[in-house]
Write a protein that binds this DNA or RNA. Structure first.
Ligand SMILES: NC(=O)c1ccc[n+]([C@@H]2O[C@H](COP(=O)([O-])OP(=O)(O)OC[C@H]3O[C@@H](n4cnc5c(N)ncnc54)[C@H](O)[C@@H]3O)[C@@H](O)[C@H]2O)c1
Ligand SMILES: NC(=O)c1ccc[n+]([C@@H]2O[C@H](COP(=O)([O-])OP(=O)(O)OC[C@H]3O[C@@H](n4cnc5c(N)ncnc54)[C@H](O)[C@@H]3O)[C@@H](O)[C@H]2O)c1
Lengths: 231, 231
DNA sequence: AGGCATTCGTGCACGCGTTCACAAAGTCCG
DNA sequence: CGGACTTTGTGAACGCGTGCACGAATGCCT
């Protein structure tokens, strides 16, 4: 907390890569690696070294020329820039197939996103316990969001109910939504939505598969998994 | 009308949007809508109308000026361009929490991606049945891939086993991989990998949440809200 | 201390994707 | 049948992200 925050805008593409760097750096730290070069990090992240340097330069000039970056310090800086210095409790709407898998997945809590609650509209689901979290009725959403200071909501309802879920979330005060339903959500200005649509991912793969066959066995673009363009 | 395929390269950003258009158009067709304008489609997809027109123009000139696009015909064309005229069986590696949710999810089969098999390395998982699919041992992977002509593999193993899973998939002949493990996979040239990393998505949301607070309540998200402020 | 090897930070050019703007092409209606 | 209106298709400008190339800074070795 001593240093002034740079506060400049970071390109979205960079923001999307910082979590990847962070994960790798934490792994390296666990393996007692103290320092890493942009080349080394680039290799592990599967990106260009210049890109790594440019990305990290948005955080400030935290590298040492001729040496590289101090892993522990970089972890701290990225954490800070991403707002991971404290936990972000999330609430999951929809305790079905997927909602249960998410709630039962320990990886979120570990990474600073504890499940503050799981809600469902189906009375037969309410009351059951998933991984230590009791499923509550969706009418309790406001209370959960307010008492637990939840900013992030996860939509795991059927497509037909996704807009309703999003409406309830924003009305309760949630300002970021991660949407798993294959639906384009309409939300008020200022609300940040990211979607995870597995069918879309598969269809993108299908496009390149089909193209591979039609055009006749030629290498596809780099084995890069571009993403972003969330809108 | 020559049915000859244009075969020009479609920008990746467009390829990523075509599935969204497709889903919306299918919905519209189900509601007996016969024709749609770029404006209408743009609204439903949450994008710019010019973008819709440019995206669709990569398929060919299939619109009618003054009217719009014929929904059914557009559905057919997008399906064709994405390679969705036939099914793409997928094999899931890892029958844990997530793998089971995926296998049990009917949405994939509906959209042309039937689950050709689920494999796991844990003998206690092998033999159990998920949504009508019996979990088989990972040693059967080659056989499944070959007999069912699988091109797409899904990695749903723990992070530590993800690279091994990817190696086995590529060795078996799979050329596209959808990876759920928070790991950067190394694959041979020509293999297409897409990743779905929920922790990354949450951390991206965290960044904007934190920024929202630090800078003091101003709109973020789709609109620019330019905050120059460098140095 | 000086020279050498290494690696960062970044200016710059390039390419891709987005958006605007408008002519072309078609419909609709009186 | 002609003119007004609608909507497509696309050229062009713009902005952003990527990757190269290189100066600057630092450590290490002799
Ligand atoms: N399961 C998967 O692997 C998978 C994969 C890709 C996408 N998805 C998508 O994720 C979403 C959830 O999938 P699922 O398999 O868990 O479905 P599901 O039907 O198993 O679960 C949906 C849950 O949402 C609840 N619900 C319905 N309306 C609600 C409302 N208005 N408010 C709160 N809760 C409500 C239902 O009671 C149910 O418990 C779907 O949109 C699906 O398309 C799932
Ligand atoms: N569950 C979720 O909601 C969720 C969310 C985000 C990310 N993930 C990621 O998805 C992956 C799977 O998560 P999960 O919760 O299903 O884990 P899990 O531990 O429940 O299941 C993993 C399965 O993979 C099997 N496995 C292990 N090594 C294998 C190998 N070499 N070959 C084949 N199978 C092997 C295990 O036997 C187990 O059945 C993890 O990487 C996790 O980080 C899961």
């Amino acid at each position: 907390m001593p240093v002034e925050r740079p506060r400049r805008r970071i390109p979205e593409a960079t923001v999307a890569r910082l979590p990847v760097y962070l994960r790798i750096l934490i792994e390296q730290a666990n393996e007692e690696v103290e320092s890493i070069s942009s080349d080394g990090l680039a290799e592990l992240a599967g990106v260009n070294a210049a890109k790594v340097r440019k990305d990290l330069s948005y955080l400030g000039s935290y590298g040492t020329r001729g040496v590289g970056y101090e892993v522990a310090f970089l972890v701290y800086q990225i954490r800070r820039e991403l707002g991971l210095t404290h936990d972000w409790p999330v609430v999951i709407v929809g305790a079905g197939n997927l909602g249960q898998a998410l709630a039962g997945y320990g990886g979120f809590g570990q990474r600073g996103f504890p499940v503050a609650g799981v809600v469902d509209i189906d009375p037969s689901k309410v009351g059951s316990v998933i991984a230590g979290v009791r499923v509550r009725h969706i009418d309790d959403l406001d209370q959960i969001v307010q008492t637990r200071h939840v900013n992030i909501g996860v939509v795991a309802t059927p497509p037909s109910a996704a807009q309703d879920a999003a409406d309830r979330l924003t009305r309760a005060g949630v300002t970021s939504i991660l949407n798993f339903a294959p639906v384009v959500l309409a939300v008020p200005n200022g609300i940040n939505v990211r979607k995870v649509d597995l069918a879309v991912e598969l269809q993108i793969l299908s496009y390149y598969e089909q193209r591979r066959m039609g055009v006749g066995l030629q290498a596809i673009g780099s084995s890069d998994s571009g993403r972003g363009a969330s809108a």
